[in-house]
Amino acid sequence: MQFSAGSHSQALAMKLVQLMLSTVSLDIINNEYSSELSMMVAVIAREFAVLHDALKFEALHLLSAILSSKYSAPVHDTLRIMSNDIWSTYVRVGIVAILQNRVAPAEKLQALILAESVISILGERWLLGQMNLPDAKDSVPADRCLLLVLESSRVEVAVLLNELAYLKYETSNNSSSNAEIISLKQRNLAIAFSLVEKTIKLISNVVEDEVGVVLEYLQDAKDHGQKKGDDLLASVRLIGRYAFMVSLPRTSMFLYGFTLNQD
């Protein structure tokens, strides 16, 4: 079921879902009603993408609670095989809206936690994909989510490291509540580190794919005796930067036997 954006029925539905999650064990819900919960995720994901009021954050918290739960494996499995995966596009759009706007740091952290959960379901390439809703007027680059998640995770890592250093080494508070705060921040730090690692891995894979295409182009040029041209010069420069980035021997640049000039 769906509700018109901002409607009283929609707000009530969100509250009912929150009540259900807070009163019934997620272990029971996930194991016995994973199909129904997955359909609920799809509906909430749409609202997360299209809403522009406080209910957007309610949807964010619900999605994060459902998908990041330690009992969420059955729901993950169900979502992974759903024939209609539009829910993942809605989540991507919603996360981008959170990360690129001025919202509370806690909300951005929740968006990163949600991103990590979706990646665990669909893989890193989910970060690259459609960013436009059916009625969207402006086109959004397909890599917007990837870049925002990487930048936001990098910032979160720096913030959490500073906070943990203070809590562990500069405060005399050894209470149980302080220990719980440290434990929570350590878990959040692990998520931020994981996102940085996964986004860098994805970028590296994309670059490798592009480099493979460029190498084939250079090989074709060599086979046909072509050694000059702006296109070949640009191709060699790209390979050179990639070789330097991955610490390959620079002599590998000369394997193709090119003597390139700009004229």
Results as ranks from 00 to 15, higher is better:
75 V>Q: 05
244 F>G: 07
131 M>V: 12
19 L>F: 12
174 N>P: 01
94 G>W: 07
252 S>P: 03
73 A>W: 11
80 R>D: 13
93 V>F: 00
46 R>H: 09
191 I>W: 10
106 A>K: 11
85 D>F: 06
96 V>C: 08
157 V>H: 03
194 S>G: 14
238 L>H: 01
248 L>Y: 05
189 L>A: 03
84 N>W: 07
103 V>H: 00
94 G>F: 11
92 R>S: 05
85 D>R: 06
44 I>V: 09
58 E>I: 09
220 D>E: 14
147 L>I: 03
234 A>F: 00
5 A>C: 03
154 R>N: 13
119 I>F: 11
21 L>T: 11
260 L>R: 06
166 Y>H: 02
144 R>I: 14
97 A>C: 11
110 Q>K: 08
110 Q>A: 08
6 G>H: 00
111 A>G: 06
15 K>E: 15
80 R>M: 13
28 I>V: 13
154 R>I: 13
69 S>R: 02
88 S>C: 05
70 K>P: 13
175 S>Q: 02
11 A>D: 01
79 L>D: 11
41 V>P: 06
215 L>P: 02
182 I>G: 04
186 Q>K: 06
153 S>K: 12
5 A>Q: 03
185 K>P: 00
110 Q>I: 05
263 D>R: 04
61 H>E: 11
59 A>P: 01
20 M>N: 15
10 Q>A: 02
5 A>R: 01
244 F>R: 14
158 A>E: 13
187 R>H: 13
206 V>K: 06
173 N>G: 11
5 A>S: 01
5 A>I: 02
236 V>E: 07
185 K>W: 04
4 S>M: 08
54 A>H: 10
134 P>D: 05
239 I>E: 06
206 V>F: 05
28 I>Y: 09
82 M>G: 06
103 V>F: 04
80 R>K: 15
165 A>S: 05
167 L>Y: 00
257 G>D: 04
167 L>S: 04
244 F>N: 12
131 M>E: 01
90 Y>C: 09
144 R>C: 14
3 F>R: 02
70 K>A: 14
99 L>T: 04
246 V>Q: 09
154 R>F: 12
207 V>H: 12
63 L>C: 01
26 L>R: 12
44 I>K: 00
222 K>D: 10
155 V>S: 15
200 I>Q: 14
193 F>T: 12
75 V>S: 04
24 V>R: 15
172 S>T: 07
174 N>A: 01
67 L>Q: 01
118 V>H: 00
208 E>I: 12
170 E>K: 13
232 L>M: 08
197 E>D: 15
219 Q>V: 10
97 A>F: 07
7 S>T: 00
153 S>Q: 10
175 S>E: 05
231 D>C: 12
144 R>A: 15
65 A>I: 11
214 V>W: 04
108 K>V: 06
149 V>Q: 09
56 K>T: 10
157 V>N: 03
40 M>L: 06
230 D>R: 13
13 A>G: 08
251 T>W: 04
47 E>L: 06
261 N>R: 06
40 M>A: 01
251 T>H: 10
246 V>W: 08
20 M>R: 15
35 S>D: 09
8 H>D: 09
50 V>W: 01
41 V>A: 03
63 L>G: 00
30 N>G: 11
260 L>C: 02
257 G>H: 03
126 W>A: 04
136 A>W: 14
163 E>Q: 11
